[in-house]
Amino acid sequence: MKKVKVYITLKESVLDPQGQAVAGAMHHLGYQEVKDVRIGKFIELEIDSEEEIDDKIRAICEKLLANTVIENYRYEIEEGVPQ
């Protein structure tokens, strides 16, 4: 069993109104040094196969988890997850 962590973020070119609202709230709290906030998604998968695992994760991300018109994705495969 492998644990996979997938991070999905809006592309640089895409405006993030949610992130802007949260940045505004941080400024309101007095944290003027916060220059930018971008909100994304974090998804954990457990995959019961190591065979072609990178190809599988990429396919899952591109078909379903990320909309590549507006989003980028990256992932990490956690080693040594207890069975």
Binding site: V14, L15, P17, Q18, N67, V69, I70
Partner: peptide, 17 residues
């Protein structure tokens, strides 16, 4: 239709949230 690729582009959260 956008997700299915029958039309181009994607939808974002409304600008005013």
């Amino acid at each position: 239709l956008l997700e299915a690729g029958l039309l181009p582009g994607a939808m974002l959260r409304n600008k005013g949230l």
